[in-house]
């Protein structure tokens, strides 16, 4: 590193463009204020001061237009499914989805013979991370968000695969 030493002032760091872009994406995962069932209570809890999602750069937004992340927190009925899809379509890219809890993963307790409940939100929108639990504790959701951050860091933006 002899050639670079003492040529730049302090606080200059070197990295690749890909890593920089991914770092900026993963550090501002603004999630949509959207919850349909009891998982929503845990989602609020996760965002509140004790578990404090803000330290990951994740703050809630009340509109899909400003959101990067959709946390599907709760049971999705067929009636709601159209709205979920519309909300997802309204989010700007790049956008990510976490399916939180059993209902959003598979239909959960409503899997067998329910006429009303959608059996997993992955039937209508692509899901990045599944968080199991009924409902998951805040630690589990935070782990899900950290897994999503890992996934974002692996993305190659500028190189053809």
């Amino acid at each position: 590193m002899g050639a670079l030493e003492d040529r730049f002032p302090d606080n200059i760091l070197f990295t690749t463009v890909d890593r920089f872009l991914n770092w900026s994406k993963k550090s501002s995962l603004w999630y949509m204020l959207f919850a349909t069932a009891c998982c929503g209570i845990e989602l609020m809890q996760t965002g509140a001061s004790r578990y404090d999602l803000d330290r990951f750069g994740a703050v809630f937004r009340a509109t899909p237009r400003q959101s990067d992340l959709m946390i599907v927190a709760g049971t999705i009925t067929h009636m709601m499914a159209d709205r979920v899809k519309r909300l997802y379509d309204q989010m700007p890219s790049p956008k990510y989805v976490i399916a939180m809890g059993s209902c959003a993963n598979t239909g959960g307790p409503f899997y067998k013979d329910s006429y009303a409940v959608l059996k997993g939100v992955d039937k209508i929108i692509p899901v990045d991370v599944y968080v199991p639990g009924c409902p998951p504790r805040p630690e589990a959701l935070i782990e899900g968000i950290m897994k999503l951050q890992e996934k974002i860091m692996e993305k190659k933006n500028l190189v053809k695969k």
Binding site: H78, A81, D82, Y115, L118, K119, K123, I124
Partner: peptide, 8 residues
């Protein structure tokens, strides 16, 4: 079997 665009 199906509703709108997904399997029930």
């Amino acid at each position: 079997k199906r509703y709108h665009t997904w399997d029930v």
